[in-house]
Design a binder for these strands. Structure first.
Lengths: 219, 219, 219, 219
DNA sequence: CATGAATGAGTTTTCATTCAT
DNA sequence: CATGAATGAAAACTCATTCAT
């Protein structure tokens, strides 16, 4: 007799199973189309237990957003060495970002599509996480500008716009590279890095951005 | 004052009222959370009339996507003179794009958020329209590259990635500029143009992209 | 300019067109599943006109029942010569009955299925018509019994039951012969006549009922 | 007095209650006119529970047909001893049939009227059950014919027609005896048996079919 | 701790029916 | 006479949520 139904697991474990099921269901069906019935079944527990642990559909969705948001943030943070030069940091961050989103498509769908499409409790949640990433990029740009003594000329809002554009391009490319077969995370990162750092004008002139040395995948 | 209940209007007019109400409701509540009841009420008609003219929720949503998609496409097309140089065309297109999305936030929400989040009948509809924009940008980049004799070095997929990044950045900035008070469509277009054409690297070196002459708003 | 839409026809004609459409629709879809929209369209008129002429769905259905009921009753009456002997009258009546029902399947469906399945206003209507047929058969049996001096022994209710059984068998065979390919109205009438007049017992003994002479189809 | 709201019953019990209510409602109102609301209320449960257990209106109706069909079939089967002579078997079967239909008028309405009037999922269901009865009668006739050495002369289709007529007459008499006060199942069976076995002709000659000995009601 | 039993409130959709022109 | 425009009312079905055991 194998363990057909694994019973009596510690609460933390059960919760993770529920969140796994929820992320998958929300990511594929969408927030509203996902039913608590389906999530409970996929998690292998009864519906009342889901309510006991996670309170409501809203709370469950919020928990998903938070968990996936933290996972993504941490993946990026872990990929970046803040002592590196700015372009290297950006390059590393992008690679980590594209790698993670490619490996967690449902989580990425929850963050990028579902959370933003269903109004206020959720949009704010994901906006906060996104703000972190934008702030990180903003700082990178600001530092570079300062080092190049360009500080005074670049208004704060201008920098914010640039960071927003970069992050937006990255988000868009994540979806693109997930649905375009044969494109790796690294290639996607290179494309965006070229675009962002060198700009189309330079690219046309034959002056692309060059990946800094020692930029290979870490073990 | 004012006709509170305007009655017996010709079908074409009523249909537009219904689409107006639907775009607003779908844009704000989301596809699934929007109820036909609410749409009918906002349109000032009874629900059966909405069904008589637009058939079903799906058809109504599709009609919204199509109408808003065409409006956006035409706005951009109208803003661009295809005999201008590439960067000028891009600049004009971006201004038209940001202007239109700023003026039709609900329509933009329908296209950018809702339609992409709710599966196949709709995603395809909006994907077709988006593909037009991407193709337009792709061609612009390709032309520029050819003129700069850079053709052989830029693989087709690389160009596609660049176009995707540019469009993605634009889409992202549309939402940003809609929610960030005090940012005009023109400023947003300038920011993105700088980012895309000059690249961050050049910007830092004090070599931004310069708007071509005669680029003022047309009357 | 050919007469694309035949307009301004006398009321009586229009009404018949409507009834034709209604009988067909009711017969095929059933009373509840038939929509006034469909009937109006099939009749080639607008819905309000149907209401103007026939008042309501109930009234329309009742009108159908009455028209088809009268048509059937008259067809049977026309097929029978009341001066013939009883078995000849029955034989002629059955032939007329099976012929008519085979030629008007929708009308028969309305009478036999729809009208009896949808409650009181209609069941009574068709019951009245059916009662005529049963009375006719009852009289036939009674006459025969009287001639055979069997009157006292056959209670009235017994005769009623026999007539009921005969009519029921006929109704059942009408449906059967309509759906069993290769069976003619005449054959069906012969089968039933054998069954009813001779009885299974006699049939088994090799003593079937014999069709009276001069029983060929009338021109 | 009496539990007005009996709560928390096991599923099997609730399902039977729902089927009871459904048979009654379908039988009296008709398939289309019966609303799930009414059925749920009559069953003393909420609508969602009906859907949870029986899936849909179609499935519920099908379940009714099956349950009532099996009950009727079994009642007839239980009333017949297949070792008896043919006419005795028929006599017993008819008595069982009329008794059962008299005791379950709504179930009989569902089978005889509603199921046949509402198209394909249902017509097939009841047709199968009816085919059983017809086959049973067909065999009875065939056996009798064989014993009387009448085999070669009775074509197969002829026998089929006779069986169809007999069953049709029985179905018709069931409704008649249900609505004619003071008529018992036994009397109805006798009437039909006379009609079928002796035939009108013989009846008129004073040679009715005689119930076989030992044909009293079983305890 | 875990679940089978149960529901209130809401969804999309359809239909018979009527004005105003 | 004839119709396009319009709706009140109800239908089937679903879902998040909660007890009682």
């Amino acid at each position: 007799m194998g363990a057909v139904k694994t019973k009596r697991m510690p609460r933390a474990v059960r919760e993770q199973q529920m969140l796994d099921a929820a992320v998958r269901t929300f990511g594929q069906r969408g927030y509203m189309a996902a039913s608590m019935d389906e999530i409970a079944e996929l998690a292998g527990v009864s519906k009342p237990l889901v309510y006991l642990y996670l309170n409501s559909k809203e709370d469950l969705f919020t928990a998903c957003i938070r968990r996936e948001g933290q996972a993504l943030t941490e993946a990026v943070r872990a990929g970046v060495d803040t002592r590196s030069p700015a372009d290297r940091q950006l390059w590393d961050g992008l690679r980590a970002f594209f790698t993670h989103t490619a490996q967690h498509p449902d989580g990425w769908s929850v963050l990028h599509l579902q959370a933003r499409t269903h109004g206020e409790p959720f949009a704010a949640e994901v906006a906060a996480m996104r703000a972190e990433l934008v702030a990180f990029v903003t700082e990178l740009i600001a530092v570079t500008a300062r080092e190049a003594h360009r500080d005074p000329d670049l208004a704060e809002r201008e920098v914010a716009g640039l960071a927003e554009a970069l992050v937006g391009a990255a988000e868009s490319l994540a979806a693109w590279s997930n649905t375009t077969p044969g494109v790796t995370a690294k290639q996607t990162a290179a494309t965006l890095m070229n675009f962002a750092w060198a700009g189309l004008g330079n690219l046309m002139e034959g002056r692309p951005w060059t990946p800094p040395a020692g930029t290979e995948d870490r073990p």
